[in-house]
């Protein structure tokens, strides 16, 4: 796959049929405090997950060996997160945001660039979830969000290891926020 394809990585294949634009960009979340606020927070997380799905879809063709096996598994996890978040938004009476038509992931030239980009995106997504946790009113919802954040942290650890870096950089995972 040409690296230039990553400039406009579509996010198809995940069953979404939204208008393609997240109303709440990843990293910018509304205040919490009730069911409606929970929907907005969940949609913010969902937008971040759509971006990760797109990143893995775009990056997989440049990965090989164990990194590719990791990437394929992690993509399946991100899709599971998308499904769960869509269910949660729907059951709360909201409308799940869909993926954007394209995402700008720069111009990675090789698998190592892809791993760096994916690790960075995982960290950004962790930061989004950690912003969501204290704002969500429903305790069970908070637990789901925390369990997803921990999974993203595990992905980040594996990606760091593939990059030859120490996989446990800090005692408190913040996503760099």
């Amino acid at each position: 796959m040409p690296a230039a394809g990553l400039l406009a990585a579509g996010c198809g294949g995940n069953g979404d049929d939204g208008d393609g634009f997240a109303t709440t960009p990843p990293g910018r979340l509304p205040a919490g405090g009730g069911d409606d606020a929970d929907v907005d927070l969940l949609n913010g997380a969902l937008a971040a997950e759509h971006r990760l799905v797109a990143a893995y879809l775009s990056g997989l063709p440049l990965l090989e060996g164990r990194a590719l096996a990791d990437g394929e598994l992690f993509l399946s996890h991100e899709r599971a997160h998308v499904r769960r978040l869509r269910e949660l938004v729907g059951s709360a009476g909201g409308t799940p945001v869909g993926p954007r038509p394209s995402y700008d992931f720069g111009l990675p030239g090789n698998g190592r660039d892809i791993l760096r980009s994916l690790e960075s995106l995982e960290q950004q997504t962790i930061a989004v979830y950690l912003q969501v946790v204290p704002r969500v009113a429903d305790p069970l919802l908070r637990a789901t969000i925390a369990s997803i954040a921990a999974c993203e942290a595990e992905h980040a650890s594996c990606l760091l290891e593939r990059l030859g870096r120490w996989p446990l950089p800090t005692a408190f995972v913040t996503g760099g926020s």
């Binding site: 204290p134 921990a150 942290a153 595990e154 996989p167 408190f172 995972v173």
Partner: peptide
């Protein structure tokens, strides 16, 4: 994360939980 009340403690618990997840990984 389910039971704590103070927002900063909720964040702390989620941060540590993610770190423990990395350890397990």
């Amino acid at each position: 994360v389910r039971e704590l009340g103070a927002p900063r403690l909720l964040t702390l618990a989620a941060q540590i939980m993610a770190a423990e997840g990395q350890h397990a990984t």
